[in-house]
Design a protein around this nucleic acid. Structure first.
Lengths: 260, 260
DNA sequence: AGCTGTGAATCGTTTCACAGCT
DNA sequence: AGCTGTGAAACGATTCACAGCT
């Protein structure tokens, strides 16, 4: 079966934990009533689960009780094989010949994504973007209440935005710790981002969502996700350029970029 | 290495025989005078090029003239092998034994990403987020000037935001066509997003950056990128949950009551 | 008859490791 | 001696295709 190959000789050995994406390993759990443990879900699948969840919630609201992979996948913009594979990471919650029960799926995805508890959010940098984020007022569906706001601007300190008074950057560690913030959102100018990040970490936040265009340095147990407007636009720009090049496939060179 | 490239990076037709379980034929059949195209840059690499570009620009500002892969990769948060591979897609612009010339690299990346020309942007939905985006005033480094704003709200029509007067959603096609908008940014509530998207497409935009939590349906030549706050937070939530599970690996924690 | 769940094949990305140039 | 450029190996994600359940 899974042949395991040695590695030549190099640094770093990544302890090959056997997580074949589909294997029924005899979990070491004793007589656990609930098969919760098992294999890791691929990162890419996690992102899609969040999308499925939204689509399913919408369907539930419209009274759907069951849904087939074909239908759900179409609504989520993926193909059905991928959808089924993704859902299979959760366990077997579908009914062959029928489909999935919407409510069951919603529950399982919420459990898997850790949405059965709240995650308090702090927003740092109350400029245009931070303001917008703060006013979102408890991001999506209640699970992510914004409970702290920070900025450097003296004129803003104490002013409530979306119901929460703004505190000073220096108080990040204390306030985050005190309020039990678990997610920090950085919406500051790039120059301030790293120091803000350090303070958030000092305050005990576990994850950071970074809107500032900088690569943050964090201790390895902290999870960081980055949303970068400039990068998104530049990727789009690349595609426009590529399309233009393709359409008038007349000037293949001009600048010396050639076949490899 | 005779890999043959399909036309497009994403979609592309399958010309694969969908039968013989183990039979495999030397793919590529009638090779027409297929022009040898420039090797396409992997999608994943494109996103990183944008990051390298920013880092390089910062280095240039501080007077650096050359940089080695080790240094640049560290600053960009990737490893050096990946960096070198990514840069190799642009061509050979480094000097063995020395490194890369910062200015040369900046120029090549800009050219590759299509940043040598401007891409006019329209922002639709002037709520909190749209307002923030509009005020960015010509996104990153001058290459993406915001030149049109739209909303449904009658109170907003005509009011200038960040220097540009807001127009009505209905005028999207006409205004976009007239001003030569190439990128549309959707910052509306989810319910409006698809219709806005259709109008942007009608107005001739080639790419869409979608902040609304919906899966957009677009003609295949339109490139869409999505930025989804809820999804980002839920991914972070997943990691918090997984870490918690790992730390206390024994207790599935009963069954949390929920919130959502 | 229909649809899920999943091994196996395929495809894309990352990493290794070293030849080749400076 | 040092650093790039790159085949090839390893890894990871997606798609195929069908066995197995309802």
């Amino acid at each position: 079966m899974v042949a395991r190959r040695g590695r030549r000789n190099g640094a770093e050995v990544k302890l090959d934990a056997d997580n074949a994406p589909t294997a029924e390993m005899p979990a070491v759990t004793g007589a656990a009533p609930d098969p919760v443990r098992v294999k890791a879900i691929p990162e890419a699948a996690v992102a899609r689960l969040a999308v499925y969840l939204r689509v399913l919630s919408a369907m539930a609201e419209q009274g759907a009780t069951t849904v087939a992979s074909e239908e759900l996948s179409a609504a989520a913009g993926v193909n059905s094989a991928k959808l089924r594979k993704d859902l299979s990471y959760l366990g077997s919650y579908g009914t062959r010949g029928v489909g999935y029960e919407v409510q069951v799926l919603v529950g399982q995805i919420e459990r898997t994504l850790g949405l059965t508890r709240q995650h308090k959010v702090a927003v740092v940098g109350i400029g245009n973007l931070g303001h917008a984020l703060a006013n979102y007022g408890g991001f999506p569906g209640r699970g992510f209440p914004v409970e702290a706001l920070f900025d450097v601007d003296a004129d803003l300190i104490g002013v409530p935005v979306g119901g929460i008074p703004v505190s000073h950057l220096e108080d990040i560690p204390a306030v985050c710790a005190e309020r039990g913030i678990s997610i920090g959102v950085i919406a500051t100018p790039p120059t301030a981002a790293q120091s803000v990040c350090d303070r958030l970490v000092a305050g005990g936040v576990q994850c950071i969502l970074n809107f500032a265009p900088v690569v943050l340095q964090v201790p390895e147990q902290i999870e960081v996700r980055k949303v970068d407007l400039a990068v998104e636009l530049q990727i789009l720009s690349f595609h426009v350029a590529r399309r233009a090049e393709e359409t008038n496939s007349s000037h293949p060179v001009g600048n010396g970029m050639v076949v490899r």
